[in-house]
Design a protein around this nucleic acid. Structure first.
Lengths: 210, 210
DNA sequence: ACTTTATTTCAGCGCGCGTTGAAAAAAGGG
DNA sequence: CCCTTTTTTCAACGCGCGCTGAAATAAAGT
């Protein structure tokens, strides 16, 4: 992996990497973003090094500074970017009968995060340590801009508590499915998950919670 | 959420530090463990530095190597140690009518982790990145040695799925309460939590999950 | 073809990390 | 009291980190 050494003598025939602009079609920025998502997921913010990300992208570490202003900027662009627009999500969740809200939430949640391979969710969670803003972002997204608005349309009985209760089930599902990967839940298909989880979610949203 | 718990040795005076053995009564090992728990919780494994832990304990960084053989050893002793014996827990959970299993689980879970200030749970979760063994330990503890055995006493309908579903609700509750600290759930009293969560847990354990 | 601009590589700086080994100071036994 | 053992501090090592500035090269503009 790490071949370094200033040996000038011997059988060194491999010519040094060419400098200058890349051939057209190669996208350094995109390669860095993809590699960053992978490495941040695998190793967390502190554990992921700029050098390792650049290496996976097949690119010089200095590119991170050139394109993203540093590790922090790359992190924000790569991980903190949500895979779906909140307004679109709320709209989709409210499109249908209120008594199937739980089902739509489970379906959309799994649909969205499964599409990213779960990596983005894991990255968010694993980054909570490194950046307080991540916990804030999760709260802002999951609770305030989505669940709160959804809950408000179906009841006005302790909407904040109901929203966080629902969040606990959703986050828990994400943790077990994407971060901890407990089987069999991690591999269970969407329909089975819906049948199992949606009723509980529905109860948090509209049922009797004491 | 500036939660300062535990040892109050933080304000060590800038006296001319003398060498050699400490005066009797001071326990360097315990101070390091307490500080380590705090810092690992706050910053994760990679983010927590040996120097910062030692500083908080009011002790020289070299003490980490002397007493625990290094950062890794300190981490294992401080964080990976579970706050309750699994067998005791299972015994307590099974002591009572099966239809109140959900309630007993919620009560014991919150009771145990609240007692540590939630710090230990947060530390476990935040360490999943750094050490694969942590995810394994969580699975071993939550699912295999506790939930599995408990579920097996009440049903033989897909016990593994039921156990992981229950785990998803429990882990989710822990995440929202201790790691993400979403309000109002993070500050909700045990009885209210029981009324809200226990029925859903009960359904995962003994109810119709499709 | 020549100039300009955008992109990339490279060498290396300064810093903080985990760790080490020796020396110093307290405690304990004869 | 001296000698040994235990505990602690200290100075410093080697390493890898994020980041920088200049040089090199490809692409684009005229």
């Amino acid at each position: 992996m790490t071949h370094h050494g200033g040996v000038n003598e011997g059988t060194r025939q491999a010519e040094p990497k060419r400098r200058g602009r890349r051939a057209g079609g190669e996208d350094t920025k995109a390669a860095l973003l993809a590699a960053a998502r992978e490495v941040f997921v695998e190793r967390g913010y502190e554990g992921a090094t700029v050098r390792s990300i650049a290496a996976r992208a097949g690119v010089d570490p200095a590119m991170v500074n050139h394109w993203f202003g540093g590790k922090e900027g790359l992190f924000v662009k790569a991980v903190l970017q949500l895979p779906i627009d909140p307004d679109t999500l709320v709209e989709r969740l409210l499109d249908g009968p209120p008594e199937q809200l739980g089902e739509r939430i489970v379906r959309n949640f799994i649909g969205v995060w499964d599409a990213t391979g779960g990596g983005q969710f894991a990255a968010l969670v694993r980054s909570v340590t490194a950046h307080e803003q991540v916990a804030g972002a999760l709260h802002e997204f999951i609770v305030r801009t989505v669940l709160h608005r959804v809950v408000a349309t179906v009841t006005n009985d302790r909407p904040e508590l109901r929203a966080t209760l629902a969040a606990s089930q959703i986050v828990g599902m994400g943790m077990v499915r994407y971060v901890l990967a407990f089987e069999p839940l991690a591999s269970t298909d969407v329909d089975t998950m819906v049948k199992a989880v949606a009723p509980n979610l529905q109860r948090y949203l509209t049922g009797d919670i004491g």
